[in-house]
């Protein structure tokens, strides 16, 4: 099944909005001359669907108590989050070009007190799911209607804290707590299958108490359909999103050397821009 999803996600064509959001990520990458390129590109469709169709939020009042909460626990994917937050008006798009610069609000990992719309400062892996768990539990205790979504990376869930939080969420039957796994199958050193195999991931997550689904993480329609049905589930949910690291850039796809880049040659910049032209 995993292989089928991989094929589908590899084949999925990007529409104009997906390409546009990737262009915004390039603004950050070129502005700061660095960043986690591959990790951001695998996330674009997940974030796009959440912000376009699922989450309740108000860019003019980012701390509105009725908002849904989204924590990007894999904080190194933040360039994708910056792209969508700027697109939704949380801050001006021209800030993207300042990414990683001395006075920028946009660092290499997102910070709650600098970037409007960022719920928690992440970057150290395995922190977002316990924090999200606390937020969801707090919401449940106060009978609030918001939902809490936590996006984790596949390498990230090597961390024991993710599994600890999973057990606790399951114990408290937190139906307002949703895990989304960006399963691009490459972590820093190489393939997750070689560094620390996660499979059988669905069975593991189910054993920890989640209602689990799998989806092609670049298929915006399928993602939107999945999120529509979440309200009916009476336990914590986990969505395994099969994604392609560096999606949209053939030379960078599933290439660990594009997990993070410290600088870009002119040639690389041209190749990146050309990949997004129609």
């Amino acid at each position: 099944m995993s292989r089928d999803f991989y094929k589908q996600s590899k084949k999925t064509k990007l529409d104009n909005r997906s390409k546009y959001l990737r262009k915004l990520v390039l603004e950050c990458l070129f502005g700061g001359d660095r960043g986690h390129m591959g990790s951001a590109m695998s996330l674009i469709e997940i974030l796009r669907v959440l912000y376009d169709k699922v989450l309740k939020f108000d860019p003019q009042n980012p701390l509105n108590s009725k908002r849904d909460r989204l924590i990007l626990s894999k904080g190194h994917g933040c360039l994708a989050l910056y792209a969508i937050l700027s697109d939704k008006g949380f801050f001006k798009k021209k800030k993207l070009r300042t990414s990683s610069r001395f006075n920028s609000i946009l660092g290499g990992h997102p910070e709650f007190d600098k970037v409007p719309g960022v719920e928690a400062s992440t970057g150290a892996l395995g922190h977002g799911s316990p924090i999200g768990l606390g937020i969801a539990l707090g919401g449940k205790l106060e009978k609030k209607n918001f939902h809490t979504y936590v996006i984790v990376g596949d390498g990230e869930i090597n961390e024991g804290s993710f599994w600890e939080a999973s057990m606790i969420a399951s114990k408290h039957k937190l139906s307002n707590y949703h895990i989304i796994i960006d399963y691009n199958k490459i972590q820093s050193y190489g393939k997750t299958q070689e560094v620390l195999p996660l499979e059988p991931l669905q069975k593991k997550l189910e054993a920890f108490g989640y209602k689990v689904n799998q989806v092609n993480g670049h298929d915006v329609e399928k993602l939107a359909n999945y999120f529509k049905k979440l309200n009916k589930i009476k336990k914590p949910t986990a969505l395994i999103c099969h994604t392609i690291k560096g999606k949209g850039f053939a030379f960078a796809e599933q290439n660990p050397f594009w997990h993070h880049k410290n600088s870009f040659t002119t040639e690389e910049k041209i190749k990146l821009i050309e990949s997004l032209s129609n």
Partner: peptide, 9 residues
Amino acid sequence: GMAAGLAMQ
């Protein structure tokens, strides 16, 4: 971490 999330609430 959970305590942090609760404090955020």
